[in-house]
Design a protein around this nucleic acid. Structure first.
Lengths: 136, 136
DNA sequence: ATAGCCACTTTCCTCTAGGTACCTACTATA
DNA sequence: TATAGTAGGTACCTAGAGGAAAGTGGCTAT
């Protein structure tokens, strides 16, 4: 409740249209960050290879890049153990964990509305609008 | 509340790790979609050029692409008026409007935590970790 | 007769995220 | 001696997204 009002209120004060969500989106929803945060949240503290294996298709280079970014943003902590062989552990921070309700909200919306999107896509593809686009 | 539990529950049932949020992210948080939805939500029904002018830096090609995608996903409706000059109006749908609380949630998180991210970045840049990366 | 408007479409070009493959140093194991 | 395991780093390459600019068509205003 009042979410609607917040949205409107925030937007009308921002003519430049860099709507307040865009910064969050860049931080949290860039490619690979959600699977990483998700895994760290659900599986707890993990080593590099564990993460890589669990996510499955990510390459070590990109995983390193994303983990650095998340570390810099304060969403994960990296702990280096100077042993042999070297051991590094990644863990989600409190700040990272504070995203959990947001993710839950996302999942809830998905559960309730994803089929509507699917339906809309199906309808659109089955009967594409002949308003002006698509030249006969 | 229970958001945390939802997150864990959903993840443990999904070993493939296409976490339930990734589909939503592709639909809602791809580039330019949030400014477009935002503008349509706050300013109401609008024509193509109004949208373009308000968003400012988007090119007509990309705006068309995004609007088609949003139309296909059922988040906006396009109304074509075969007049002279032609007139097209875009409007957000109920499905699109159902994202409002989610956006509000995002904005709330941003308001409360964006400064922490900034701080973390500042700290990280000021004193980069010497665990293993960066060779002296 | 020419210019302009709208809502695009088309063509070309650039830029970068991401992928492939190979490299480091160190030790334990076979 | 050779291999495997660890946590990456580095160089190179490609595909695709996105930007710039010009074209399209039909009517209208000058």
């Amino acid at each position: 409740m009042a979410g609607d009002t917040d949205w409107v209120a925030a937007a009308t004060t921002d003519p430049a249209l860099a709507c307040p969500t865009s910064a969050v989106i860049d931080i949290v929803f860039s490619r690979w960050t959600t699977p990483i945060l998700w895994t760290l949240h659900t599986e707890g503290r993990q080593r590099f290879v564990e993460l890589q294996r669990r996510i499955g298709t990510i390459t070590p280079k990109v995983l390193t890049q994303r983990l650095r970014q998340l570390e810099r943003d304060g969403l994960v902590v990296r702990t280096y153990h100077p042993e042999v062989p070297p051991r590094v552990e990644y863990e989600i921070t409190d700040l990272g964990r504070s995203l959990a309700p947001l993710f839950a909200h996302l999942a809830t919306w998905a559960a309730g509305n994803l089929d509507k999107v699917e339906q809309a896509r199906h309808d659109f593809d089955a009967d594409p609008p002949r308003g002006a686009h698509s030249s006969p």
